[in-house]
Design a protein around this nucleic acid. Structure first.
Lengths: 339, 339
DNA sequence: ACATAACGTGTTAACGATAACATACATGGA
DNA sequence: TCCATGTATGTTATCGTTAACACGTTATGT
């Protein structure tokens, strides 16, 4: 018993062939309930552990779905992954998670690493990638799903939304409530491509309404933290004190901005309105509650999972890639005078 | 080119043996720089992707370190995983992450799943497990590290801290500042074992000081959300209005409690003090900033990674399991009248 | 009752890489 | 000069499982 038992040992102990042991551990195999139970008991006694690595090699199916997210510590992405994982689980698929740290070069490296594990599908957060990363994904000959974005040139399937349009909705909301001098707080756009899309959406939406789109505060690399949101608000209040409303690239930054107002005795929304993005829990709990946009992260995860399960189950070749657009929803709350 | 190329195809194209191709992709192998580069170029042209599955089977090394965390969406655990991952990366090890959802039965199932992938080490969040899970981990014959806890009967190595002691420190802090009627807000203790440990620590610490330990508010399953923290605070203010200080099982719940005070016009800390646990970002940003305890999640991840890298590199059998205790640190802030 | 199908199990070879050993050639010290 | 040593490459067998096929036995239909 010094070495870990294999099916061979189990087979010997149970008096059957290795193949029968193999069948005892698969749901679809034809084997009598009797034998199956007997073998499982024997296996348990021996402390046998099924070797997925060998199984993967022989069957050419890894059971992995590779997933990349910018950060593990982000409720939005976590919700997508949780929903995805929940949908894939019953299909016998396991999520192999990697984080890109909001960096396309890191994403490229990561995708290379993940593909070596022979995943059966690839779920990528975002629609901007290096040329090399694009090539790797296209050559992989597995379903690819881009999420949290609506890429111009999709690699394959997409389950996402337009970050720019989301900002358009938010600008419309603020505009309708009478705000004119609206600022945007975001991170260094050369990294967070979704953040950059939101900023771009903000700028064009402002321009379309004949409003000044130049109140832009940039604070460090994404993800923009609460602290950075507060710092950005401090800069904004110091340099552009006549600003009437602020849109932050995401809720944590918006909340940070709110706290800075609290510290300075500036009333929200009476003196200045604040809005975020993502419908993180904090936006509903803070005082005042923050107006935000809900991109439905869990729904994206479910849809992606559903799509993958379908693509891998059906041998039928789809008539081309699927595009599922999720419509982000404005959640109007007290921080913009609503709710 | 219909099927994915293997080393065989690369070897043929480069005019070398398969073994030489294999060597071209390994850092430790003896091969001329010339040949290596030539082979890599050929491989690139063919779109060859290294097959880690086959490599794993033959070499009996998966390159995986399996890690379980209660929730993906938790900054504390995420920090531990990020640090761990960062330390394992240079050692060529990849984190295979699974979430238990604060559920020991789910943990058991998950561990079974993970072990099939032949991980080289196992990092588990928490020190409470089902009997069957314990057995599986012990039989696995790989290094096991329990974190975020200080188990009575460790399975192997431990990189953690005592949740109960942390509460002792917090009670001491509040007590020193003159608070006597102290309440505890937590989740259903039958699920979150670390939360239960903290509650237990609170009770004994209170008893040790001759204080009443019965102001306990329980709200739903862990993780206790901001909203639930607010709800608990509402109950507390309604039923035990003379309470002087509140300790929440974690910062998000503490923040939720704080917002409830804001909504009711109750001043913190003048009317009631609030403290949390975890040193989440929000505790430093909220107004007032929340007193909390920093368990140094990143440090735990680094230490665990360091330990694993050492154990897997050195063939030398250690003289038994390692125990690394991290000392959580009180972070006194305005919400308890400090700072 | 007989052909046929369905079921349960066994045999053989293979998935794609690498460990272990073998070999060819160059280098160098005595 | 000759053998020891090192370097670069090739050969063979194998990791643990499962696809594909074969085979004997037991239902099923007519």
């Amino acid at each position: 018993m010094s070495t870990k038992p294999t099916m061979k040992e189990v087979a010997a102990a149970a008096g059957v062939s290795v193949m029968t042991v193999s069948r005892a551990f698969r749901s679809d195999a034809s084997i009598s309930d009797d034998t199956r139970e007997r073998i499982r008991n024997v296996a348990d006694e021996l402390g046998y552990v099924f070797d997925a690595v060998a199984s993967n090699l022989r069957s050419q199916r890894s059971g992995f779905v590779a997933v990349t997210i910018p950060s593990i510590n982000n409720a939005n992405f976590a919700d997508t992954v949780a929903a995805l994982s929940g949908r894939l689980d019953p299909a016998g698929l396991q999520v192999l998670l990697g984080r890109t740290n909001y960096d396309m070069a890191e994403e490229e490296r990561l995708i290379g690493q993940l593909l070596r594990r022979q995943p059966e599908a690839l779920v990528i957060t975002g629609g901007h990638h290096t040329e090399r990363a694009r090539r790797m994904m296209q050559n992989a000959a597995i379903p690819v799903i881009e999420t949290w974005d609506l890429p111009q040139e999709p690699l394959g399937n997409v389950v996402g939304f337009s970050n720019a349009d989301a900002m358009r909705v938010m600008v419309a909301h603020l505009s309708a409530r009478g705000y004119r001098k609206i600022a945007f707080i975001g991170g260094d756009s050369s990294f967070d491509t979704r953040g950059a899309d939101r900023r771009r959406g903000f700028v064009t939406a402002m321009q379309d309404r004949g409003l000044d789109p130049s109140r832009l505060i940039t604070v460090g690399r994404p993800p923009v933290s609460m602290r950075e949101g507060a710092a950005a608000m401090a800069i904004l209040l110091d340099t552009l004190p006549d600003t009437e409303a602020v849109i932050a690239v995401a809720d944590p930054a918006a909340f940070g901005a709110l706290t800075e107002c609290h510290r300075r005795g500036i009333r929200v929304p009476d003196d200045i309105a604040i809005a975020g993005f993502g419908n993180f829990e904090i936006s509903g709990v803070s005082v005042p509650a923050l107006t935000t946009i809900d991109p439905f992260p869990a729904r994206m995860g479910e849809q992606a999972g559903e799509l993958i399960a379908g693509l891998l189950r059906g041998k039928v070749t789809k008539n081309g890639p699927t595009l599922i657009e999720i419509e982000p929803q404005l959640v109007a709350r007290a921080s913009t005078g609503a709710g």
